[in-house]
Structures are given as structure tokens and as C-alpha cells.
């Protein structure tokens, strides 16, 4: 599974998004309210456990967390840096 698919799968499951709603990679999850301030921490916990990365507080910002694409890109950059 690509990172983007894995992130989408997590978002859909964790935030109980029905199959009938299609989440595009670029839709703003914060704007839709699918991810809220607590939800961001759930995303962070997922990224840390799934990809073995450590997310610093200053990285928990809208730019990194707002869409499926942004989250996936953030993980890939972090993972590449760690490798």
C-alpha cells in the first residue's frame, strides 16, 4: 500500500467516514471538521506507531496535517530523513 493509501485508510476508519463519501487527497480535513484539535493528536499517534517516526510539537501544524496528501508527504519526508 502506498503511503497515501495507508493514510486515507486510517482517516476513513478512525474518523468513521462512510464509503459513500469520497475523500479526495487534497480536501481540507480541518475545514470539513473530520480532523479536529483532538483528531490531530490521533493522526500524530498513528504516524508515530505506523512509520516509526517522531513528530515534534512544532510539526503539528495545519500545513502538515490538513489533507491526506499533506500528511503523506510529511511522513515521507520524515521517513526519508530518518533513513
Amino acid at each position: 500500500m502506498t503511503t497515501i493509501d495507508a493514510v486515507r485508510s486510517f482517516i476513513v476508519t478512525n474518523f468513521y467516514v462512510p464509503e459513500t463519501i469520497v475523500l479526495t487527497d487534497d480536501v481540507s480535513l480541518l475545514e470539513l471538521g473530520i480532523v479536529d484539535s483532538t483528531g490531530v493528536l490521533e493522526v500524530t499517534a498513528f504516524l508515530e506507531s505506523e512509520y516509526g517516526i517522531e513528530v515534534a510539537d512544532h510539526e503539528i501544524v495545519p500545513a502538515n496535517m490538513d489533507s491526506i496528501r499533506a500528511i503523506a508527504a510529511f511522513v515521507e519526508v520524515k521517513a526519508a530523513r530518518a533513513a
Binding site: 476508519t13 478512525n14 468513521y16 467516514v17 462512510p18 464509503e19 483532538t38 490521533e42
Partner: peptide
């Protein structure tokens, strides 16, 4: 409600409680 979404919500809340975590405000209301 969408049955699949409800099942995911229920599973998530059950998991959270089982692991001793507090449910978020949003999950609670849902």
C-alpha cells in the same frame, strides 16, 4: 446512519475505552 460508519465509530470508541483512553468530545457526541 451509514451502518459501516457506525460500526467504525463503535469499534473506535470500544478500543479507546479498552485501552483506558478518554473519548474525545467529538466521538462522545457522535
Amino acid at each position: 446512519f451509514d451502518p459501516g460508519a457506525v460500526a467504525q465509530l463503535h469499534a473506535k470508541c470500544t478500543r479507546q475505552v479498552a485501552s483506558g483512553k478518554v473519548l474525545s468530545n467529538t466521538d462522545n457526541m457522535a
